[in-house]
Design a protein around this nucleic acid. Structure first.
Lengths: 193, 193
DNA sequence: CCTACCGATCGGTAGG
DNA sequence: CCTACCGATCGGTAGG
């Protein structure tokens, strides 16, 4: 059973993804939920608070997923593959909210915007550190870690478009294909399975 | 010298990127241009018409760039590298408008939205065809061309974020690094320069 | 959770 | 290119 609060936040995620944060009115959201607009304010103090909950909730998911991904893994290659898989699985499990996380966070206001940017940078940094470590220990060739991080993460993030159009896609296989291209692309040797 | 029309469209591109289409008002745009809001309607029939011009103008740029990129190239590898470079150069030359092209096209209305989606699909298809051809002639290994296309294009598109933050980046080098990772990642053999 | 309503702002038009 | 202005819609509040 979904609590009312949970229902509102999911509906907001759906609408923010479909029409964008700015173009979604509280009346649109109320209609989707099945109440009158002012009733929403019994659960959330503002439209901004809804966006905040979605964006930072997703940030938590991604950080948790990364942590689970890298434990019990030894090589940078394995860590990067696993982190990629977990990352895509989070997107798959939250197809609407993840788009809000990727594209609507710019509507966060004031200090929350800065806090969000820091979290995002921090997350990217975790991937970058793995790539740098792999370069240092000769697992990967000498590449620009910043560019490689962007390459990998943007490919992983783009999976939401693929998965949105065909829900019966397997997120694990998808992540594996992307990871294989990327890892092969930065490896010193040919890649054997 | 920029015509008034050109100035308006550039200002619109800047604001649409910064705040999004829906959150940018014609009054915001008028202030940026230095006129009163109603004066804008002497140059454009509506806010929607501005978005239309930016989105389809950028589509033209990308198609033209692709055409230039592949002529006089023989292998799929060379074509993909060259197309990647030209793609990134278009982004570099139109840093604001390209973000509108990537993220604000969802606010296109009615038949224009469908026309835009078709163009976009068509452009992706050109990359996909190169990858499929490369697989067929054994230049690349047996990969899912759809996934590979998304991987490559999303990495190339992400360069706008990198270039926005440091304008003195070299778009050619950036594209080359991404292309090298990607081509190596899908190649049958090790890649030699 | 609702009805009634607020001040602000929106895209756009009329008329000059 | 401007001033004056339109009807519609916005996020949110008061009060019950």
């Amino acid at each position: 059973m979904l609590s009312r609060r949970e229902l509102i936040i999911r509906s907001a995620g759906k609408l923010f993804r479909e029409k964008g944060y700015a173009a979604t009115s509280m009346r649109d959201l109320a209609r989707e939920v099945g109440v009158e607009a002012p009733s929403l304010y019994n659960h959330f103090s503002s439209k901004q608070a809804l966006l905040r909950d979605i964006c930072f909730g997703m940030a938590d998911e991604f950080f948790q997923a990364f942590k689970n991904a890298v434990e019990n893994k030894t090589t940078c290659t394995d860590k990067l593959i696993s982190a990629g898989k977990e990352h895509v699985r989070v997107i798959y499990n939250h197809l609407e909210a993840s788009v809000v996380f990727f594209e609507e966070w710019i509507f966060l206001e004031g200090s929350e915007l800065n806090r969000f940017k820091r979290l995002r940078k921090n997350y990217q940094q975790k991937f970058k550190a793995l790539i740098e470590e792999g370069v240092n220990c000769n697992e990967f060739r000498k590449i620009d870690a910043r560019v490689a991080t962007f390459t990998y993460l943007s490919s992983l993030n783009a999976t939401h478009e693929l998965m949105m159009h065909s829900r019966n896609i397997n997120p694990d296989e998808l992540a594996e294909q992307i990871a294989e291209i990327f890892i092969k692309g930065i490896s010193r040797r040919l890649f054997h399975h």
